[in-house]
């Protein structure tokens, strides 16, 4: 059984076709990357998998559960980090993690919160209000929220978006470490270097279509490129 199975997935916004029948699958334990420019359809795909949007047609399953028909079950085994996400400014980081952990496991939430605090690396600032955090601190808190429960699938939309190099490196290491604990990760990015470093498999997406899938080295070799960025440009331009 695949961790993620997407087949002929189509999504319309009014008359605009955002996804034009994409197909890919993610194996359990993978760190899988969806790469593409802005507006390619990465976020729409992830939002469908996170049960936020309904597919217009096609199939999207997570560990065998249909994201539309079994949305409640899907939500129990996934966690989702949107590209543009914030926290509740009048709650402390600790309260935020506790609130989220309680919704997954009201009995054992404390151990998850402790793990979340460790992942976030916020130290004592975890007891300060989120409103006082910097953008990087908020992103680390949100990533900790998404990963602290060790979900079966973590869907991370541009996990290092808007972060400086140092913080982005920290976050990439966190993702790698969590993935070792039986967490399948599906992430999107337009940073080819990041994807090359993190993911064992990727799909290149452009204008609502998957243009290539495989490991980063397979894709680079398939078009005789020197890096993933060059491969992407060659594939898109045909």
């Amino acid at each position: 059984m695949y961790a993620v199975e997407v087949k002929d997935l189509v999504k319309y916004y009014g008359s605009f076709m955002a996804l034009k029948g994409i197909t890919f699958h993610v194996d359990e334990g993978d760190i899988y990357g969806l790469i593409g420019p802005n507006g390619a359809g990465k976020s729409t795909t992830l939002r469908i998998l996170a049960t936020l949007l309904k597919p217009s047609s096609g199939v999207a399953r997570i560990f065998g559960y249909d994201v539309d028909k079994d949305a409640d079950r899907v939500r129990r085994i996934i966690s989702y980090l949107p590209e543009e996400a914030g926290g509740y400014k009048y709650l402390t980081g600790f309260e935020y993690l506790s609130m989220n952990a309680k919704m997954y496991d009201p009995e054992n939430f404390r151990e998850y919160v402790e793990y979340g605090i460790e992942i976030s690396g916020l130290g004592d600032r975890i007891y300060d209000r989120i409103g006082s955090y910097s953008k990087g601190m908020i992103r680390r808190l949100l990533l900790a929220r998404a990963l602290m429960m060790k979900p079966r699938l973590a869907i991370l939309d541009e996990p290092t978006a808007g972060m400086d190099v140092v913080h982005a490196t920290v976050i990439r290491d966190i993702i790698k470490n969590v993935a070792r604990e039986d967490v399948t990760i599906l992430l999107s990015s337009h940073n080819m270097l990041e994807v090359h470093y993190l993911c064992n498999k990727i799909s290149l997406i452009n204008e609502g279509r998957i243009v290539a899938s495989g490991s980063p080295s397979e894709i680079i070799d398939s078009v005789n490129a020197s890096n993933l960025e060059e491969a992407f440009v060659r594939l898109v331009r045909g």
Partner: peptide
Amino acid sequence: EQKTLEILLTLPID
């Protein structure tokens, strides 16, 4: 506005 709604809607609660 705070971009918290999407996370809220993906939590494992009704």
